[in-house]
Simulated assay, not measured.
Amino acid sequence: MGGVAHLLTGFVVLVTVITAVPSPSALLWLIRTLALSVAPILAVLAALGAAGEFTFGAGGYAIVAGVLSALSGAYFLLVTARQWRQARALGVRPSLWAVVAQVGSFLRTDRPGITGPHVDHVVARDGTRLPVGIWSPDPIGPGRRPAVVLVHGGGWVGGNWRQLRGYATWLAEHGYVTVCLSYRLAPPARWDVAPADVLDGLRWVDERAEALRVDPHRVALLGSSAGGQLALLAGSLPERATPLAAMVAIYPPTDLPLLYRTLRGTRVSPVGSDVPALTTYLGSTPEQSASSWRWSSPSTHLDTAPPAVYLATGAKDQWTPLAAIEPYAARLRADPANLVVPLVDADHCFDLVWGSVPAQTLRATMLAFLDREVRGDT
């Protein structure tokens, strides 16, 4: 038993160090993201490790290991408490059991009471065919439904319409028709093409509103990460010709030059290097093409945004740091119709663990926002 306790203690202490220190690589960032998302589980494992060391260990090593394991447990217990306290302050009742039971639901497609995906294609303005996935409540019932159009992430260079199927099926379960869009990925540079693809997707939904049983005046646009940038940008462009009741963005880049400068100063980039996702998507650095970087930033177009915007991000996000989002968020806070939720002790992609306390907080506050601003609940 002492050997098992040593292994458990070593694992938990190593994860604690990785979690507490800014990550110098993508792999360590992923470990940090997952660790913060399953903090309650790690707190329990640390407590078991400490108990094992003090019960079955012998000598000074066991005492030191036990103390380190106990400190790791205290760290993750504090993370859990902070996440829980924020959820309760926002009116959310999170479930700690869901952290374990809903680990894989980010990719879930088999929720009850829905139908889909039905796969169709948007024909972009230049004739390119882009696949879309559609989910609907089942039975859809009489009348028209509110809809959410979803834009996936992937650093503008990866991902596809299936990536947000967890959100699409969950929203369909709550009464929304959901449409997951595709857009063209870099390379080559897609800073002008990808937003146009999103606009064409919105036009496609509007033109097929009757067939989809969608109310064209109750449509929201949702994007995650790079898709959040595209959603906020396309939804705010003056050339958007379709109605849009609200936008939802999850850890989105909002000011691309500011994000570029911020990431060049952090260890995860690493320090002083270019930011490949940004420079590949835009085909330049901010110094080489300031106008395209400025145009591609949702912060440039906030004055023409829809009447309600929801923005959630991790307060410890290393890929879209809060410091690079805060100027945009501050402007959103000036209008009470908008909602900004910086989730404590959460990193980029925290919702990969669907049942994490931050992910539960995100979904509950986002659904309340959509029900108020899109569905029309009072």
Results as ranks from 00 to 15, higher is better:
residue 196 A to T: 09
residue 176 Y to F: 04
residue 305 A to N: 00
residue 154 G to I: 12
residue 22 P to F: 03
residue 222 L to I: 06
residue 226 A to R: 11
residue 115 T to P: 15
residue 286 P to V: 03
residue 55 T to N: 14
residue 206 D to K: 15
residue 19 T to V: 10
residue 80 T to C: 13
residue 80 T to V: 04
residue 13 V to S: 10
residue 37 S to I: 01
residue 29 W to P: 05
residue 144 R to D: 07
residue 189 A to D: 07
residue 334 A to P: 00
residue 157 V to R: 14
residue 224 S to H: 14
residue 227 G to K: 12
residue 272 G to N: 12
residue 350 F to T: 04
residue 183 Y to D: 09
residue 193 V to Y: 01
residue 104 G to D: 14
residue 182 S to W: 05
residue 214 V to S: 08
residue 254 T to W: 00
residue 253 P to V: 13
residue 57 G to V: 09
residue 355 G to P: 00
residue 229 Q to G: 08
residue 311 L to D: 00
residue 192 D to N: 13
residue 177 V to A: 05
residue 316 K to W: 02
residue 177 V to S: 08
residue 292 S to K: 13
residue 3 G to R: 15
residue 235 G to D: 11
residue 58 A to I: 13
residue 211 A to N: 08
residue 274 D to C: 10
residue 258 L to F: 01
residue 289 S to I: 03
residue 221 L to Q: 07
residue 248 V to W: 02
residue 15 V to K: 10
residue 29 W to D: 11
residue 198 V to S: 06
residue 335 D to C: 05
residue 254 T to N: 02
residue 90 L to K: 14
residue 180 C to D: 11
residue 52 G to L: 12
residue 319 W to S: 15
residue 166 G to A: 08
residue 220 A to I: 12
residue 296 S to W: 09
residue 125 R to C: 01
residue 274 D to E: 14
residue 226 A to H: 09
residue 101 A to Y: 03
residue 364 A to P: 01
residue 137 P to H: 05
residue 375 R to L: 02
residue 80 T to K: 01
residue 265 G to V: 02
residue 127 G to V: 04
residue 301 H to S: 03
residue 113 G to R: 11
residue 240 R to W: 01
residue 106 F to Y: 02
residue 192 D to I: 12
residue 234 A to L: 11
residue 133 G to P: 03
residue 30 L to D: 12
residue 17 V to L: 06
residue 19 T to E: 01
residue 323 A to M: 05
residue 39 A to V: 08
residue 52 G to W: 11
residue 253 P to N: 15
residue 183 Y to R: 13
residue 276 P to F: 06
residue 79 V to R: 10
residue 135 W to L: 10
residue 8 L to H: 07
residue 376 G to E: 10
residue 13 V to K: 12
residue 72 S to P: 06
residue 17 V to S: 10
residue 304 T to E: 01
residue 138 D to W: 10
residue 110 D to K: 15
residue 339 L to F: 08
residue 199 L to T: 12
residue 11 F to N: 10
residue 209 A to Y: 02
residue 179 V to E: 03
residue 223 G to R: 13
residue 210 E to K: 15
residue 33 T to L: 03
residue 144 R to E: 09
residue 146 P to D: 14
residue 245 A to Y: 05
residue 56 F to R: 14
residue 89 A to L: 15
residue 372 R to I: 07
residue 100 V to C: 03
residue 16 T to V: 13
residue 249 A to D: 06
residue 227 G to V: 01
residue 207 E to G: 11
residue 344 V to S: 11
residue 154 G to H: 10
residue 240 R to H: 03
residue 253 P to C: 12
residue 284 S to Y: 04
residue 327 P to L: 15
residue 335 D to G: 07
residue 197 D to S: 14
residue 214 V to W: 07
residue 270 P to K: 12
residue 303 D to N: 13
residue 91 G to P: 00
residue 185 L to N: 11
residue 231 A to V: 08
residue 224 S to Q: 13
residue 330 A to Y: 07
residue 268 V to S: 05
residue 258 L to G: 04
residue 4 V to C: 12
